[in-house]
Simulated scan of single mutants.
Amino acid sequence: MTTPRMTLQTQAVLAVLLERESWGFDLSRESGLPAGTIYPILRRLTSVGWVTSRWEQAEAAQEDGRPPRRYYSLTTEGRARATNALAEAAKDRGRLTGLLAPQPGQEHA
């Protein structure tokens, strides 16, 4: 299974999907990303087998007076890979933060 680029945007989408199944607008709201960013990420994650999708039952949507939603969720393997990828990204951020932190005795400019 291929690993997608782990951009901050991809990490934000994965973090939401690790919590629950979600649809596009909800993913956008929860991640803080625009739809134009969300959907290409979902396509990439789907193409590598990390994400699957399903359409909501039309009756449920009709009762709410709206079109059916397309729900996205992590596959079993996608969940495991996303958990590992986010943990690794967090470690990388920690290392970078350590490199950028002022060393003892250094003055700030």
Rank of each mutant, 00 (worst) to 15 (best):
G32H: 02
P104W: 07
L86H: 05
A87E: 13
R79L: 08
L86W: 01
E59S: 14
T83P: 01
M1E: 07
E19N: 10
R66G: 07
G24A: 11
T2I: 07
A82C: 07
T37H: 08
A85T: 00
R5E: 14
G94L: 14
G49E: 00
A101T: 15
R79W: 12
L100C: 06
G49W: 04
R20Q: 12
L17Y: 04
A58Q: 15
R69A: 06
L42V: 05
R70K: 15
A15T: 06
I41S: 03
E63M: 14
T3F: 13
G65I: 09
T37G: 02
W50K: 00
R43C: 12
M1G: 07
E88W: 10
L100M: 14
R79E: 07
R66W: 08
G32E: 02
P104Y: 05
Y72P: 00
R79S: 11
A101G: 03
E88Q: 12
L99W: 09
G49Q: 03
A61Y: 12
G36Q: 04
D92K: 10
R70E: 14
E56L: 03
L86G: 00
G24S: 10
R79Q: 09
D26G: 00
E107L: 13
P68K: 06
R43T: 12
T46Q: 13
P102K: 08
S22I: 02
P40C: 08
A87D: 14
V16A: 01
S73C: 05
A90H: 14
A90V: 08
H108D: 08
T83S: 10
A61K: 02
G78D: 02
G78N: 04
V13C: 01
L45Y: 01
I38V: 11
L33E: 01
R66S: 04
R5Q: 12
G32W: 00
I38A: 03
T3D: 10
Q57G: 15
L45S: 01
A15Q: 08
R20N: 11
S73A: 08
R95M: 13
E19K: 05
G24W: 06
N84Y: 14
L86M: 02
L42D: 03
E19H: 11
T52S: 10
A109N: 03
E30V: 02
Q62G: 08
T37F: 08
T97G: 12
D92Y: 13
T46C: 10
T97P: 12
P34S: 04
L33V: 01
V13H: 00
V16W: 00
H108F: 07
A58F: 15
Q57A: 15
V48R: 02
S28E: 07
P102D: 03
P68A: 05
R43S: 11
R69P: 08
D64W: 15
A58V: 15
A35T: 03
R54L: 09
T52K: 05
V16G: 01
P40D: 05
G36F: 00
L100T: 11
G78F: 06
R43N: 14
Q11H: 04
P68F: 03
L45G: 02
A12C: 06
Q9A: 11
I38L: 07
V16P: 00
